[in-house]
Amino acid sequence: MTFTKTSQKFGQWADSRANTVFGLGFASEQQLTKFAEKFQEVKDAAKLAKDKSQEKGDTLSNHSQESGRETPSANQASSINGTDDEKISFSPETAQLKSENERLKSCVEQSNTTAKKYETELQTLKESNARLVDALQESSANVESWKKELTVCQEESETLRKKIGELEAQCKEANQEKQRNAQLTVRVKELEAELQEKEQELENLRRQAEIIPQLMGECESITAKLKVAESKNKELEGRIEGLQMDIDDSRQKQGNMKGELKKFMDVLDGKLDELHEFRQGLAKLGVDN
């Protein structure tokens, strides 16, 4: 049996007769070294004691053989007629051998006790290792399940990130749409203000248009008067020359008034066309909005 250091804190030895390998773990390398030295010391002592006992046994056997050959009758007599104390009496070498055997027995018993202690500790270590193996297997299974859960969580996180990106894009578009709506609201208010101004202008033009019939009536009355004056002109030829200047002035005023009335009608038609186009544009803008 040879003790071998397999690492800094672990050693083992093999019992070839029992076909068993023993191993021990230590808290430090110093304890391992001390145990290895004590193991070797006990092994050497046991080997030395075994050699001594074998030599003494051989010496005893040779001595007894020589004694038997020299005095067989005396030995027979002592063995037959001797007492129990004489039967168990030995030589000094035998007593020394006996004491050596006792010491070796105590060493062997101590070694057996130590071996049992080590076996108990080894069994405890085996049980601990078994528990550790079970715990390691369980941890490995938990790690696999955690990896699967982590993969699922990562996939869900990626999906959520994509959804968040889509929602952010939608929010951005909504903000842009709000900005456009705000701009359109401002533009509509401006157009409403312009529309009110145009309506005010139209109202003014309508008021001015109400004066046109009066002017037309005045023109008709003037024309009637002119006809009357022309009819009377025949009768009042004498007055024609005097009144001719008045008539020319009246005609000139009438022509000027007709020109102004025509210009006013043209301006009114242009304003009405502009108002009509403005209403069409406003209606189109409201539809687009």
Rank of each mutant, 00 (worst) to 15 (best):
L195V: 07
Q196M: 01
Q196Y: 01
K198E: 07
E199Y: 08
E199K: 12
E199T: 12
E199V: 09
E199G: 06
Q200T: 15
E201D: 12
E201V: 08
E201R: 12
E201N: 11
L202M: 08
L202T: 09
E203V: 10
N204S: 13
N204W: 08
N204D: 11
L205M: 11
L205S: 11
L205E: 09
L205D: 04
R207Q: 15
R207G: 13
Q208R: 14
A209D: 07
E210H: 07
I211N: 13
I211S: 14
I211C: 10
I211W: 04
I212H: 07
P213V: 02
P213L: 01
Q214Y: 03
M216S: 15
G217Y: 03
G217P: 05
G217S: 15
E218Y: 07
C219A: 15
C219D: 09
E220K: 13
S221K: 12
S221V: 06
I222P: 00
T223F: 08
T223M: 06
A224P: 04
A224K: 13
K225N: 13
K225Y: 06
L226P: 00
K227Q: 15
V228A: 14
A229H: 00
E230N: 08
S231A: 13
K232D: 14
K232P: 03
N233V: 13
K234I: 05
E235N: 05
L236W: 03
E237W: 06
G238E: 08
I240D: 01
I240L: 06
I240N: 06
E241C: 00
E241N: 04
E241P: 03
G242E: 01
G242N: 05
G242R: 06
G242H: 02
L243H: 08
L243Q: 11
Q244M: 00
Q244D: 00
Q244G: 02
M245F: 04
M245I: 03
M245W: 01
M245V: 09
M245S: 09
D246P: 00
D246V: 02
D246K: 04
D246C: 03
I247E: 01
I247Y: 02
D248H: 02
D249Q: 03
D249G: 01
S250V: 05
S250E: 07
R251K: 12
R251C: 02
Q252E: 08
Q252M: 03
Q252D: 03
Q252Y: 04
K253T: 08
Q254S: 04
Q254K: 08
N256F: 07
N256E: 15
K258S: 09
K258R: 13
E260Q: 13
E260V: 10
E260M: 04
L261W: 01
L261D: 05
K263H: 14
K263Q: 14
F264Q: 07
F264G: 04
F264Y: 10
F264N: 08
M265I: 11
M265F: 10
D266N: 11
D266Y: 00
V267S: 14
V267Y: 10
V267D: 15
L268T: 10
D269F: 05
G270Q: 15
G270M: 11
